[in-house]
């Protein structure tokens, strides 16, 4: 009897779970063009060494035109302190890769609410002409109206000589893996 009522209860609970939540179709993607990335940031090596320090190796590469006035900075969660100093690069030519080694030690504090992490960020001036040229490519961006939107964005950035800001954020619980 007890078995039967437990079974019935489980059956009802299962049925309730099935009907309790369902989602309607989300409105689908509104078409929009994206522009190609200007910069590639790849963590190609990550490990804690024998002294407990985190070592990262980050490859920096231009993926569109000649990037200039690059400022490479580091941030971390409060359980880590990055020992590597801020770097600058006057330019990064297409195809030319740079490797940055990042060293971080533990501070003894607890990780952040979101976890334990190191951020390698780059602020730079993109190759505006190269972006505008790509944005004007009618083969890559055939829809005139949508193409005009990205051209406008590219031209606005060029007029303002806007600095771009990109980063890679490495969570230390994946140390040992590539990202």
């Amino acid at each position: 009897m007890k078995m039967q009522s437990t079974g019935l209860f489980l059956l009802v609970a299962l049925a309730a779970m099935i009907v309790a939540t369902f989602s309607a179709r989300a409105a689908t993607n509104q078409f929009s063009y994206q522009l190609p990335a200007n910069l590639s940031l790849l963590v190609n090596d990550s490990h804690f060494d024998s002294t407990g320090k985190l070592q990262l190796s980050v490859i920096l590469q231009s993926t569109l035109g000649n990037l200039s006035d690059l400022e490479i900075y580091f941030d971390s969660s409060k359980d880590l302190k990055v020992l590597t100093n801020l770097r600058t690069l006057s330019s990064l030519k297409p195809g030319a890769a740079r490797k940055i080694r990042v060293l971080a030690t533990r501070t003894g504090q607890k990780p952040d609410e979101i976890g334990s992490w190191v951020k390698v960020g780059v602020k730079y001036l993109p190759d505006y002409d190269a972006i505008i040229e790509v944005a004007s490519d009618t083969a890559k961006y055939p829809d005139q109206f949508e193409r005009e939107k990205i051209q406008e964005i590219a031209q606005n950035n060029a007029q303002k000589r806007a600095r771009f800001s990109e980063a890679v954020r490495f969570f230390t619980d994946q140390a040992g893996s590539k990202k």
């Binding site: 309730a16 009907v19 309790a20 939540t21 369902f22 989602s23 309607a24 989300a26 409105a27 689908t28 993607n29 994206q34 190609p36 990335a37 590639s40 940031l41 790849l42 993926t63 951020k119 990109e166 980063a167 890679v168 954020r169 490495f170 990202k179």
Partner: peptide, 27 residues
């Protein structure tokens, strides 16, 4: 999606995180 914007390395990242409103009916 910081660090995952490179569509060469993460080819479906745009689609995977495309903005949306999902309607959920909850009992």
């Amino acid at each position: 999606i910081t660090g995952y914007e490179d569509t060469g390395r993460y080819p479906k990242v745009s689609d995977d995180f495309w903005p949306q409103n999902a309607r959920i009916y909850r009992y």
